[in-house]
Design a protein around this nucleic acid. Structure first.
Lengths: 146, 146
DNA sequence: CAGGATCCCGCTAGATACTG
DNA sequence: CAGTATCTAGCGGGATCCTG
């Protein structure tokens, strides 16, 4: 049926392009860090002083600590995020079989380096984001009417 | 009714946290660049040699050129992406009233600097992404079964 | 050629309830 | 305490049709 050949061609071209995108390392990285909670978990585990009592190893946090610090997160998303990060070797999950089971999370070197990268993003953002917001306002004011 | 006070408290806490997130510049930046097509438009406009014939100013591209180079994009998403980038002052939109109207897009300095940042991401990704993929496979193999 | 308007679908985040 | 399982609503995104 030559009727839909054109559509098929386009579908294939798109599929190939998608495959290209899927193979692009920067896209994979973006897909990873762009996740709302990934960024926050990284920040929580990589940042200093999540809790005031532990001065020695503050970057090791328990599940409930994380869920408290990240406030609005559902335990579904938190678990999901932690699992994917563990899967990628960005953090380690340690289960201690105490009476109520204890689970702690900690960044690996890879995770730490990613956290470092995120801070680079933060620097750029803090430097240029106000320019962007200004541009945005200007754009809305100028061309927004009617 | 004190019955739902707890729920209200949590809702408010979440709202505050969301507000905090919305104000965080790095989150805004992430929300911006994490967009699939934003990254690609930036790459297309910032990269060299999108088309082989124009050696002089390759970073100025027409709508149809972009839509061709980005393959799988729908014109809705392309337009939407371009508009938002223009709004943020990351690129300029130039309309030339020829017989069939001609529109060209070009990165601003801000857009170029963002593109530079993206290349930094790319470097990290290319350096570490294979480690991540290896970890991922290992994880799936080890803990995936039963 | 460049883009606006519209319909529609899939995915995913979130809430809820249950378990070891 | 630290999850898992299920259901649902919301919305991002694609396909299609139409205009200047």
């Amino acid at each position: 049926m030559p009727t839909m050949t054109a559509a098929q061609k386009r579908a294939q071209a798109k599929a190939e392009y998608d495959a290209f995108l899927a193979n692009c390392p920067s896209r994979q990285l973006l897909d990873r860090i762009s996740d709302k909670w990934v960024a926050l978990v990284l920040a929580a585990l990589g940042s200093d002083c999540p809790h005031p009592d532990g001065a020695g190893e503050p970057r090791s946090m328990r599940y409930s600590e994380l869920s408290r610090q990240l406030a609005g997160v559902s335990q579904k998303m938190l678990t999901q995020t932690l699992r994917s990060l563990e899967r990628d070797g960005l953090l380690t999950r340690t289960v201690t079989p105490t009476v109520p089971v204890t689970v702690t999370y900690e960044l690996t070197n890879l995770g730490l380096s990613l956290h470092g990268l995120m801070r680079g993003l933060k620097v750029w953002a803090e430097t240029n984001m106000d320019d962007i917001l200004t541009n945005r306002e200007k754009y809305d004011t100028t061309g927004g009417a009617t």
